[in-house]
Design a binder for these strands. Sequence first.
RNA 1: GCUCCCAUCGUCUAGCGGUCUAGGACGGGGCCCUCUCAAGGCUCAAACACGGGUUCGAUUCCCGUUGGGAGCGCCA
Length: 475
Amino acid sequence: MSEIRTRFAPSPTGFLHLGSARTALFNWAYARRHGGKLILRIEDTDRLRSRRESEEAINDGLRWLGIEWDEGPFRQSERAERHAEVIASLVASRQAYRCRCTQEELEERKQRTIAAGGKWTYDGRCRDLDLGEECGPHTVRLRIREGADLSWNDGVFGHSGQDAREIGDMIIRRSDGNALFNVAVVVDDLDMGISHVIRGADHHPNTPFQIAIYQALNVEPPQFAHVPLIVGTGGKKLSKRRDPVSIQHFRAEGYLPQAVCNWLIRLGWSHGDQEVFSAEEITSLFDLEAVNRSSAQADPGKFQWLNQHYLKQLPGNQLLREVLPFLEAEVDAKVEVTPGLERLLDLLRERSKTLVEMAQQARFLVVDAIEIDEKAARKHLKPAIAPALSSLAEALDELGDWSESEIEAAFERVLAAHGDLKIGKLAQPVRVAITGGTISPGIFETLAALGHEKAVRRIRAAIRGVESTAESRTD
RNA sequence: GCUCCCAUCGUCUAGCGGUCUAGGACGGGGCCCUCUCAAGGCUCAAACACGGGUUCGAUUCCCGUUGGGAGCGCCA
């Protein structure tokens, strides 16, 4: 059996799109699974929409996801000569012919046919005219035999095909001399030795026409597999306005590439009841047979769950490396890495869905001065708790060993000394005092992570705050 | 409008004629744990779109209906 060669062929018209990324992932997984190669080809023949920056964005996105290609990136635009050559050979062998119908004429005839209740395919006006080079401005059309068998066995949809009569003689070269997408794709796939064309189901209707080109070229088409589209909430088409669709966006939101890949691979593909797949599992288990035929909605909830799952699994040094940029953006300053910070991040991974959230939750530890949430202060920093808070500040200040267990012991002493105060009564005020809010990891762990000096300073500052508001109230 | 495609809990899905009183996961409810928030454990609710066939037997096969999607460019 010959080598498995798949390709990812995006058009560089924006950022790496969610659906494109999944197609890339499927192609990559399929190639890896079978010891084959993935070829990256940029379909940039639409000059108006193609931009070099978006090509870079696609490469970056793929690299970030860990999808490595083996050959390319090739640019379709750089292969124009080869496309022209193939079209010329098709004309020479009378498989294609020149057509001088103008767009206006075509449009008019089309409207007339439709108005008369007919179905429009090219009416073949120039089909047998045998027009030569000198016929003036013209396009080139592929001659489609009426009885041609344009069917194929799709890797996902099974037996597929369309009646040749439904297709009509399609244009393969524009009047400006450039090849059209369908030919360019066929020629490139052929030249690049692609064995499996795995692409979005939006290409499903294109396939019969491409098969006609393979037939005209008298070559065997590759295997086709069309993967169902990803749709947005409500089963509607993904919209750039409503749905987040760019991989870069997810990256900026603090999602891990492992989570994105895992999420995407399970959209339309499954392996029994398994939900979590490492990159190794993806590339050893992925299988076209198990790809679904119906389109899938992208569920953000599952995505968040997966992201937290991977966050929890990340080795400490990697977690730090991932969060640091987000944390520095959060506080808008360079952040010094301390053991306390590392400890806090470790506690935070169980409480964060994304790196962005984690950075927000770690903020209190790296800033010099915190802002205390007013509502939290009103609820928890009341005069009644001030005495206990003072004793705690004292007890903590005297601690020689700033460890979680010593801090806990200090708490217990203070609690006992204040009439068996419940720990919750003291923990919340302290939490507000040191983090500015009501939410944090366990209070002993949080205090330990924050550090001796900052912790005591913040508690004392909170006590002063309580006293001053108490005074202003009695006025 | 025409061509093609799809249809299991809210969502992603398992199921490839009897094992289905339909399984898992996310999300949701409840309980436990608990210094807050999480995490974790246990638990509950939740689906075969509808109508005809085929068959001893249909979630599974066939045909319609309905609903959704894609394509119908001198775009890719």
